[in-house]
């Protein structure tokens, strides 16, 4: 029984989630681009690569904007959280090995202890965001059930993956949960608020273009 589930989640469902993620992302970005061309022509007319990159750079370098400097702890957590969230799954030894077994391609991987630390960073980030959501009035006011659900969805593959990697009791079940929640997370990126991953360069880039090209002002 457990094996059947394992083969399903580690076989066809991986493909399904990857296809949903890749095709979904392409679809979202292209359909949004078409919609912009149809109804928001200003976005395309005023988009300016130089100013877009200028703005994006100021917002992906830690503490490069005043907003980030005003919230030093939040910035530190947000950056370490996002960096670990993206890099850990890609450079985890176990993942690299699985891919090598399947396709015989491989790349550099993280030492286990660092991968563990990065995983814990993601989990700690989720806990930080959870607490922040619960106690800061301006964030709580904006929060609904979906925000907690999305946080749980991010935490699930990392927590269960860590559990499985440590071979703690019940690690088989943890592994299945890890794979399944990872797949759900990946597939949900284009279709939920996680889509900020796809749209960040466009929203920030557009604002950067408006501020740099038209308004002659900084937007950070």
């Amino acid at each position: 029984m457990m094996h059947d589930i394992y083969y399903i989640v580690s076989g066809p469902m991986v493909w399904i989630s990857m296809v949903l993620f890749a095709a979904g992302s392409l679809y979202r970005v292209f359909s949004m681009g078409l919609l912009a061309a149809k109804k928001d022509h200003v976005v395309i007319s005023y988009m300016n690569i130089r100013y877009a990159l200028r703005s994006i750079l100021h917002w992906i370098i830690p503490y490069a904007s005043i907003s980030m400097r005003r919230r030093p702890v939040m910035t530190a957590v947000a950056f370490s959280f996002h960096i670990c969230l993206i890099l850990t799954p890609i450079f985890l030894l176990a993942h690299v090995l699985l891919i090598k077994e399947s396709w015989n391609i491989s790349w550099w991987y993280l030492p286990d202890r660092i991968a563990d630390a990065m995983t814990l960073t993601v989990i700690a980030g989720c806990i930080f965001f959870l607490i922040r959501r619960a106690i800061r009035p301006e964030v709580r006011y904006l929060t609904d059930a979906s925000d907690y659900f999305l946080l749980a969805l991010v935490a699930a593959p990392f927590a269960s993956g860590f559990w499985a990697a440590q071979h703690w009791p019940g690690y088989n079940l943890a592994l299945v949960i890890h794979i399944l929640s990872g797949e759900v997370l990946l597939a949900s990126i284009p279709f939920t608020r996680f889509s900020h991953m796809l749209f960040f360069p466009f929203t920030r880039g557009y604002m950067g273009s408006e501020f740099g090209g038209v308004r002659k002002a900084k937007d950070w």
Partner: peptide, 27 residues
């Protein structure tokens, strides 16, 4: 007729983080 990509993207991208609060004199 008028709600296009900007409206849609802004509404879906907002992560409800509340960081904008610091900016607003009303708040």
């Amino acid at each position: 007729n008028e709600g296009g990509a900007r409206l849609k993207t802004y509404m879906e991208t907002c992560a409800h983080c509340g960081l904008c609060s610091d900016a607003c004199h009303h708040y």
